[in-house]
């Protein structure tokens, strides 16, 4: 029996959005009478934290703390159209729409504040704590609470805004395939280290070191959630998962979590995550879509590490103990 060790590397990029269908999302933003802000969307939160990120984007743009923002999604009676939560488009497309709507609302807010303070709106700034002040003279200020009250009950202004972000549809050119299927690209490089039991074909992923470039980590803790979970899913894809274990034979498909294999809490690789930020030109605060790309580089990195360990190439996913063992046996007889 021998436990053999190997490591492998992979580098990837990942596109944001689905331009080949036209890629729109809308957002509405309005203030309540006491200066809280509602973001209205029809975008779906799958657990990745869409609502929280939209709240932070709106708060940053308006100039209020995040806890002053409420996100109302996804109700088709109230929320304007969003293409959907897929293609790593949620943060990017909806975020841009929220920025546009929030900017419009902010402008009205500043205009009302200007009337109250008897200055020009262009001379005003927000302090991020819920106040509007004159640039260079912060003692001359008014709370957003009072501005909203004034807008509603005194000045008859609607502190609100509309946001629409559309990447126009790209039609692939028939003969050359010239097309613009997406906008900004995220990047990653992963190094995986494995142990392979050459008598059973069992693989243990010891470590994965993932470097992800995601444009901008809008909320670093939530980015970390996605990247750690995605890295786990990548390893899972590499070594465990399929609904058809004997593809293309249709038999023996798993029907529960016992038969559908994924790494358990006792199978976790020591996981390191390093994030780089090269802001994208068109992303909200430079963000790109990190949700999908983070689960991709582990797959080839693990495959290459298995080869490095035992000298057999498994070019069929998932890289099961059976496939490795068969290859090892073919290697010794061949």
């Amino acid at each position: 029996m021998a436990i053999r060790r190997g490591r492998g590397v992979a580098a990837i990029n990942y596109p944001t959005g689905m331009n080949l269908g036209g890629d729109p999302t809308q957002a509405l933003v309005h203030s309540t009478p006491t200066g809280n802000f509602m973001v209205t969307l029809s975008s779906v939160d799958l657990g990745q934290g869409m609502k929280q990120i939209m709240a932070q984007i709106c708060a940053e743009t308006i100039g209020v703390p995040t806890d002053r923002v409420v996100v109302d999604t996804a109700d088709t009676d109230t929320g304007p159209h969003c293409m959907g939560t897929f293609a790593s488009r949620g943060t990017h497309r909806a975020g841009n729409a929220v920025i546009q709507a929030a900017k419009e609302a902010r402008q009205v807010m500043l205009e009302v504040a200007a009337e109250e303070l008897e200055v020009n709106a262009s001379d005003l700034e927000t302090d991020g704590q819920g106040n509007i002040q004159v640039k260079g003279a912060p003692q001359k200020s008014i709370s957003i609470f009072d501005v909203a009250l004034s807008a509603h009950f005194k000045r008859g202004r609607s502190i609100s805004g509309r946001g629409m972000f559309l990447i126009p549809r790209s039609y692939p050119e028939k003969e050359t395939g010239a097309m613009k299927p997406s906008t900004c690209y995220a990047h990653a490089c992963t190094v995986a280290e494995v142990e392979v039991d050459d008598e059973t074909g069992e693989v243990t992923v010891l470590t994965v070191k993932n470097v992800f470039e995601i444009g901008r980590a809008l909320n670093p803790k939530m980015v970390e959630q996605q990247l750690v979970g995605g890295s786990w899913m990548g390893i899972s894809h590499a070594l465990y998962e399929t609904t058809e274990p004997y593809y293309p034979n249709r038999d023996h498909g798993g029907t529960d979590f016992n038969q559908y294999l994924m790494p358990g809490p006792g199978d976790l690789a020591q996981t390191e995550i390093i994030v780089l930020e090269r802001p994208s030109a068109d992303g909200p605060f430079g963000a790109k879509g990190p949700g999908e790309m983070c689960a991709n580089p582990q797959i080839p990195a693990v495959a290459n590490a298995v080869f490095d360990a035992v000298g057999v190439r498994i070019d069929t996913l998932p890289i099961t103990p059976e496939r490795i063992l068969r290859a090892l046996k073919a290697q010794t007889t061949g």
Binding site: M1, E199, G201, Y246, G253, G254, L261, P321, E322, L325
Partner: peptide
């Protein structure tokens, strides 16, 4: 048995090992 966990071939192969 052959099931989603492993094939009959694999089980037979690793039985003596384990």
């Amino acid at each position: 048995i052959t099931d989603p966990i492993a094939s009959a071939w694999y089980r037979a192969e690793v039985l003596p090992v384990h």
